[in-house]
Design a binder for these strands. Structure first.
Lengths: 324, 324
DNA sequence: TTGTATGCGTTATCAA
DNA sequence: TTGATAACGCATACAA
């Protein structure tokens, strides 16, 4: 490992001079700086991050915690976060699943954290925040001076989804939910129920599920066996919707006629369904960007808006029938 | 920041005793250890990684470099790598795009690296390897004592793809390729040509493309305009195949009859096409596992097999016609 | 069994 | 303009 000490020896100067030269400190002559930089390059010098971090107490890295990398979702969010960080000369560390990488936060190994991972315990978040770590949370409602929220406007999305179903004059409403510990699922469901209740003489059937394709298949089975006509299904995410398609197709029920479906997330797969899946869309990329911008603002001592929401819109494709 | 110094003060012992206690060194009494651990917990102590790293010269982290997170590919590989690392108490850092995270390798910020990223310059890989860093490469052919290769058996896969097309007795062979700098594309193409040449009186049309859906659409256009019958297309990845489907569908050409397609990668999207895409499959998860296992072996001073290959198999779905 | 002291690679303060 | 030196937090050889 070649360090500044060796460079100093080779250049015949002290280590502090080398450090100044490497960091572009104007204290050192241009001449000696060039000489030192040349030697550093020649010796394949690369600064040791641990040493620097120890001294500076700042890593210029931020941690993004996600629940996995699968599907057509996280990659867009990650890209959004990464683009902002890159512009601001921060490095991104993406942590998933493992609890050990979470320790990066209290260990001051990252200068801040963005969390979009239901599996990240809320208690841990508040613990870290108590210890002075700055955090942006994207998937639940935590009130803390060191925590900012950048969230999807689930209420807005759910309202629009129900409105889209209502416009097709369905007779029965069904909501297929995600896991009960999902904040997204909870809020979407709550709003959906509220919206349906506003209508006269309308009931709503809730089928608890788990945001997965098999879960959607099972839900389709249940709905099919009830033998309802003119049913409008709000699948709280697109994976469920895909499962619903599969389930109904197995019974030769064509989506868009007796059964209308609206999903949530605008997953790429939905465009490949027949008919295309009508769904609630939002910019995953922008969501990531906003989260990163907010965190950087916090780190820089600015006080960003504590609550921010990402807008949604409905994309009509065909699962509500030709009328659309 | 609470460090061992403060704990020592609170406990009325020296910092070394604290360090011993925290690291479970048997030198210290069980009694004092328990007392120190209790105090550490109470004070919310978390070891500073930079300090420890600086001292130990080992981070127990490994870097995985990928070209992005999109699609149905990287997530499986990452999961495979992560599962092995977790078992061995290593932490995973996933780097993408940014060149700054690449510096983690020479900075000794990771104990080793796994590379599956065409955008990672080969020259950089050999530089790092020269400097003694241990690397597993998954996407090209680099010969170096500090580099092991864990690669897809592209030859095997391409052979099987052409064989599957041949079994349907197509009259014309077409290969739609990836970008020219892609090792995967190069080897698949080379083998495909070799296999077709083995047959009598067979020619093969090569359409250079880029592994993307739009690229596939353009290729379909070209093929359609040539007006060939009984054409068998080997799309060197599934995204191209999806684009081909779209292109042919636009001209009301049904895949599986006059046009037969076989893809590569077994992307989830292929199962949603009509008819399902016949493709070359392999275990992405296992690929990641093998890469991680190999790297850990290298780090532990064992000398693993320098070349390893992941097997492939053809999954038949319908894009070769009913005969299959 | 515990304490003292040193060094890991870097930055930054203070003298020279 | 440069050099000597003290931190940063931790682990460990050695002394007590």
């Amino acid at each position: 490992m070649v360090g500044i000490r060796e460079i100093a020896k080779h250049a015949g100067v002290s280590i502090s001079t080398v450090s100044y030269a490497l960091n572009g400190n104007p204290k050192v002559t241009e001449e000696t700086r060039d000489r030192i930089l040349a030697i550093a390059k020649e010796m394949h010098y690369t600064p040791n991050l641990a040493g620097r971090t120890l001294k500076k107490q700042k890593t210029n890295m931020i941690g993004l915690y996600v629940n996995g990398f699968g599907g057509d979702f996280y990659s867009h969010v990650i890209d959004g976060v990464a683009s902002v960080l890159k512009k601001n000369n921060y490095e991104l560390i993406v942590g998933s699943g493992g609890s050990r990488s979470r320790a990066f936060i209290p260990q001051k190994f990252v200068d801040g954290a963005i969390i979009l991972d239901v599996a990240f315990p809320t208690e841990l978040v508040t613990d870290y925040a108590d210890a002075g770590n700055q955090i942006v949370i994207m998937d639940r409602d935590i009130s803390h001076e060191n925590v900012c929220r950048v969230m999807l406007d689930n209420n807005d999305g759910a309202e629009k989804a129900i409105a889209a179903l209502a416009a097709t004059q369905v007779k029965h409403y069904v909501v297929v939910t995600g896991p009960t510990n999902s904040y997204d699922s909870q809020t979407r469901l709550k709003t959906a129920i509220r919206q349906v209740e506003k209508q006269d003489d309308q009931s709503i059937l809730v089928i608890p599920s788990d945001f997965t394709i098999p879960g959607g298949r099972k839900a389709a089975e249940i709905i099919y066996n009830m033998g309802m006509k003119d049913v409008g299904i709000f699948a709280l995410n697109d994976e469920l919707a895909i499962g619903l398609y599969e389930g109904f197709t197995a019974h030769h029920v064509k989506v868009g006629n007796n059964v209308k479906i609206v999903g949530f997330d605008n997953d790429l797969l939905g465009t490949y369904l027949q008919p295309g899946l009508t769904t609630v869309d939002y910019s995953k990329h922008q969501w990531g960007e906003r989260a990163a911008e907010t965190l950087l603002a916090m780190i820089n001592g600015e006080a960003p808006q504590q609550d921010q929401f990402i807008n949604t819109r409905v994309i009509h494709r065909g699962s509500l029938g030709e009328a659309q």
